[in-house]
Write a protein that binds this DNA or RNA. Structure first.
Lengths: 185, 185
DNA sequence: TTCATTTTTTGATGTATATCAAAATCGTTG
DNA sequence: CAACGATTTTGATATACATCAAAAAATGAA
């Protein structure tokens, strides 16, 4: 079965007709490490997932790159902004490993919501799950020291450490690479 | 019209039957400053709104209260956690002014989603909007200094300053009251 | 393996913010 | 108005983290 549809089914039932329609709109990409999936200002893809690989979302602040999240295999992600409004995301999305992606375009997703209103149940569940993840991130940034945030991250995404360099982790945590190095000692 | 329903309608259409059913399940409360709407561990209410008044959500960390958000009139809020899972919220919710609340219980909301699947469109829109608000809060905590976070807050909720004391604001910003006082000078 | 490049660590110093204590100000009530 | 409690400000000092520079270690290509 199409891996993106498999993930969608974790949130609610899909009947055969809907499933086929979605399947026809899911695009597969194979991308190399370093390539971009999305650059700031584009709004091509809404939800997507990796069957293989690793991705980061980042943006620029004062000329520096700051990572906003990392995506690993078999999670659904995407930017809510282009789904909710018609504004593009302000984030860039880049592959940190050679990856395989299944994605659905914003316009297709909105067509599907219109055509099959029952899909909104799955859309609601996904958005609610995203809220919970975001709330945890807020809690971490609001209440934890650098060292606590580091431990929270490796608890949440334990294999990240083996897959990305410490500069990326530090940028996600909102600290410098030097501080992260000292924390780890 | 019931003020909570009025807010719900901003997110999508409600036909008359659904509207009547919701209306019967919306509860009205009138509460005094200092009273609690929810304490940690309860999971009574899902979504609610104030027609009058002001509310804060807070939790304890190392024996100290930390504010996670403030709610003013005519916004919809609530904790996503009890809607998405059946876990209670870890937050406490307290009135900072004498207030009037319209609320719907978690169980009623879930009944309604089951009975009228088209309601999921509104539920999805609300959750997506919450995601966008949470993303802005993350951006602020991740990238801004204390003084920048202060300015972001007064831009987002300008009348908050006239309604709550600076200790509450500092706690929301993740700084001490002393630092906030120095920032403001 | 060797060399160049990238990543990580270390050191010295600066800055933002916390902590604790106390003073000043404000708001409320007798 | 006077006096009390709550809120806000000020001051002195401590701590967490940033910055800049350089060394050390790891990685990868020839």
């Amino acid at each position: 079965m199409n891996p993106l549809i498999q993930q969608l089914k974790r949130y609610g039932h899909l009947n055969e007709e809907v499933e086929k329609d979605i399947e026809q709109r899911v695009n597969y990409f194979s991308k190399c490490k370093g390539e971009h999936f999305l650059k700031k200002g584009q709004h091509i893809s809404s939800y997507f997932m990796l069957s293989k690989g690793l991705i980061r979302a980042y943006f620029f602040k004062n000329g520096r790159e700051l990572n906003s999240w990392f995506g690993e295999e078999n999670q659904i992600f995407g930017s809510i902004l282009p789904v909710y409004t018609d504004k593009p995301s302000f984030e860039n999305i880049q592959f940190l490993e050679d990856s395989e992606v299944y994605a659905i375009a914003v316009d297709d997703l909105n067509d599907l919501y219109r055509k099959y209103p029952e899909l909104n149940l799955i859309g609601r569940k996904i958005a609610e799950e995203v809220c919970i993840v975001l709330e945890e991130r807020i809690l971490s940034l609001h209440t934890e020291s650098a060292i606590e945030r580091y431990h929270s991250l490796i608890k949440l995404q334990p294999n990240l450490l083996n897959r990305v360099n410490l500069g990326h982790i530090a940028s996600y945590l909102g600290i410098t690479q030097e501080t992260l190095s000292r924390i780890r000692r």
